[in-house]
Structures are given as structure tokens and as C-alpha cells.
Design a protein around this nucleic acid. Sequence first.
DNA 1: AGCGTGACGGTTGAG
DNA 2: CCCTCAACCGTCACG
Length: 355
Amino acid sequence: MLFVVVFAEQPYGEVNQLGGVFVNGRPLPNAVRIRIVELAQLGIRPCDISRQLRVSHGCVSKILARYNETGSILPGAIGGSKPRVTTPNVVKSIRDYKQSDPGIFAWEIRDRLLADAVCDKYNVPSVSSISRILRNKIGNLSQQGQYESGKPSPPQLSYSPVYPYSYPNAGSPSSAKLGSPPGMAVTAGHMGLSRAWPSVHTVSNILGIRAFMEPSAIAGPEGYQPKMEEWASVNRTPFPSSHGLNGIEKSTLETDIKYNQSSANLAGYVPACAYSASQYGVSACSGASGTYAPHWQSQASGGLSHAGGGAMGQHGHSLHSAMAFKRPTHGNLVILTFRESDIRIKFIITIYLSF
DNA sequence: AGCGTGACGGTTGAG
DNA sequence: CCCTCAACCGTCACG
């Protein structure tokens, strides 16, 4: 007999007037966004959707308006700024210089940009900008060999082309963050994936943690399979063991792919357009990650009596991958404390074992 | 009562 | 590495 009791200390998340949980500044989980559109298509009035999902009517209105306008349920690209000097053309030129002379210095590139009239003295990138381009873009490109300036690559995975807005620079920097497994082709879709590390502040995280506590939430009463997103974000902070980390990332990738492939649901809400470089490229497929407030709020917290089956199996696997389970020499009580100080979420997992 | 909209406080990420 | 700033977010209040 195995009892697992999870205590999740979550300092983030606010409650709106309707009792719904949200994270200020962060998008609603895609599952909720999908649900909003679904309900609207069923003819349910926005005000009723708002009450049912406990999302402000302004938000419902906004999401529906966006869906009607763009055909996408996805939020816009958050953060970043439009390229001021590092236009696709400039990047292409830098790439060409680098490819023709791999040992070229950034300042030499800068001089050549001026000499070749790619830029003038007013818009030539700084040496540090060029260095960053070399590091973040050209470096990856030299491995991929498929960068087309400003032109999204054809998606190889169905989760990539989900974002209705172009995201010119989505290409690269975080590929390193993700640490794509060696040998894995880093396509635009994967780049989108790399950017899809959810913020630790996302509602999905918070609710995901709650879902971890709620068997019915895990079961997904709305038919949305919870997935690894929450744990992927929990594991965002580097662990001492890269082995474990890689395992998690891989499983996360697989889960994403698996979900998307099995979900005809989301596909209807994210246009299969050509915007492959996407900040939310995977967020979309992870969209169904969520259970949302109405499901768990109305239910008493129940312990996970068994860590097997369905999505929970995935979670369990990740936990094992992420943390070194150490059983005490004596006794049948295992107290496992997982402190993620970086993201300020603390888990205390107590496992009761009765033999 | 329902809906559209803008202010607000917040997050994010390229420059 | 840190800061800036412009993009986005959802909530709330108002009309």
C-alpha cells in the first residue's frame, strides 16, 4: 500500500471576482482558452462561459474576439522586441561572413557590414550584438543549416505552426536552454518548443500542481489530458545530474508530441499556418495541459493513492528522473523534500509505505 | 444583465 | 550580467 501526500506551497496565483485562479501577467492555460471557444461554439453566451469557467468576461470577450479574427486561441507573443538593427538581412550577412571565414571577429563583421553597405553607421549592430547573433543564431544555424531569414521552416512536427503571429527571432537563443538531445534535429518546430518552457508563473503550473493533488483533475473531466508541462517547468532549474534532466526533457518532448498527435481537439483551434517560429509553439499543444479551476476547486483534496496509470505515470516518471529517491534505512516512512528555490515552489512529498 | 473597452499592474524577452 | 522598453497578459470598472 502506498500513500503519497503532496504538499505544494505556491506563493503565486490570484483569485478573481468569480473565484477563478489566474496569474497576473500570464496567459490563461490553453485548455481554458479552448474551452471558452468550445462553449461559445455550442451557443453558450459569453457571460455564461465567464461564470462557468470563472474567467472574467473581458477575457472571454477578448479570447473570442481574437479567435474570430485570427482563428487561433493562442495568446500573443509576450516579451521581446522587434529587431531594430539585427534584421533578417543583417543576420544573413553575418551568417555569410561567418561561414566564409569561421574565425572572423565580431568587430571585423561590423566593419564588413559597413563596407558592404549592408548597414550604415546608424544602424550597424554593435559588436556585442553581433557576438550575440553569432552565439545565439549563427551558432545554431551552423548546426541546423536551414535558417532562412524571416522565412519559417516547414514544420516537421504538427505542433509547430500554431502561432498566428510571426516571431522573427524565435529561432534560437533558447535552444541552448532546452539543450536538445544530441542528434535531434533542431527544426523551427523545435525552436518553438524550446521557447515553450512555461513560465513558473503560469496558471498551468499552479493548476498543474493542484492537478497533481486531484485525481479527478488528472483524469481530466473535460477530456483534456494533463501533461508534463508543469513538471517540465519545475525541472527548469538545472539539476546536478544532467542525466536526469535530459531524461525529463526528452519525456517532455515526447509527451508534447504524443499529446498533439492524439489531440484532434486542439488542432481545430490553432490554424495550420506557416508561422513555425513560435513563442508558444508548444504551449499550444501543451494547451490541453490543464485542468482548470472549476474542476479542482469544487472538489475536496484527495490523496493520490497510487502513482500509476495515465498521465500520472508520466509525472511519476519525471519525479524519479528529477530527484534521487532515498529510502531511509529504518522505518517505512519516506519523506522527500524537494525544494526548488529558484522558482520558489516548494514541494514536500511524503510517501507512506506500509509493508 | 450583457458586452465592449480602456486603465492598470503584472510578466516576458530582444536589444 | 543588468537594464530598458515595448510587446503581451487577465482583471476590473465603467459606460
